[in-house]
Nucleic acid binder design. Structure first.
Lengths: 105, 105
DNA sequence: AGGTTATATAACGGATTTGTTATACAGAGA
DNA sequence: TCTCTGTATAACAAATCCGTTATATAACCT
């Protein structure tokens, strides 16, 4: 159970095609930030800010490995089930974006 | 199943506390536009535009009765179940907003 | 017809969003 | 230490959002 204000804030975070796609990819498992940079036709700082927004909303957790940062869905977020329900309604997007770095996936 | 773009457009419509509250009230049944005007602390034109946005997204249907227009959730929208699922996650908001007109509810 | 009420549209302003480029910071490795 | 790579932040611009006030439209009623 959530308040209208809390829910609308989370929906604002979800209401963007780039972020939704990132989340959908993370549903398949942890993703290196660099793979998003390869994947989307926007700048690295833009990617970074999308990730920050989702992190600040509590939707993501991060794990640092050397210089790479891996992001994954935060299963303990009070909104986790909402996120999953929405992602499950999205057609699978074939990711034509292989990470071109040594981040070891 | 929806595309990322379609879903993000609908989420953008849902990602507003005023609109979410309106939808929650309509979940309890048809609502006269005038009741929203009574209910919220924003101007009548602002209400009208929120309703238009939801109507254009296909989330609402309207019924004219004399000079009053009654809005209800569009159960045939491809996003109806998504809307309901989200509304069900919202704490009930006690509406301190009785319609002060003769719209006969 | 003229007035009243309900709703919609137009025009505008301030805040927010989302991208950009430039720059800073952090870790790896020669 | 110096350089390279990956990521974050700052500063800015264009577009969008969401409110306002003023005005138009539609239906009702005398």
């Amino acid at each position: 159970m959530h308040t209208v204000d809390d829910l609308s804030k989370v929906l604002k975070v979800l209401a963007d095609p780039t972020r939704l796609t990132m989340l959908k990819q993370m549903q398949g498992g942890e993703q290196c930030a660099c793979s998003f940079v390869d994947c989307f036709d926007i700048s690295q700082p833009a990617i970074s800010r999308h990730l920050k927004m989702m992190r600040q909303a509590g939707l993501l957790l991060e794990r640092r490995d050397k210089q790479w940062i891996h992001y994954r869905l935060n299963e303990t977020s009070p909104f986790y089930s909402i996120v999953i329900d929405l992602l499950d309604k999205i057609e699978t997007v074939e990711a034509n974006c292989d990470c071109e770095t040594d981040c070891a996936i």
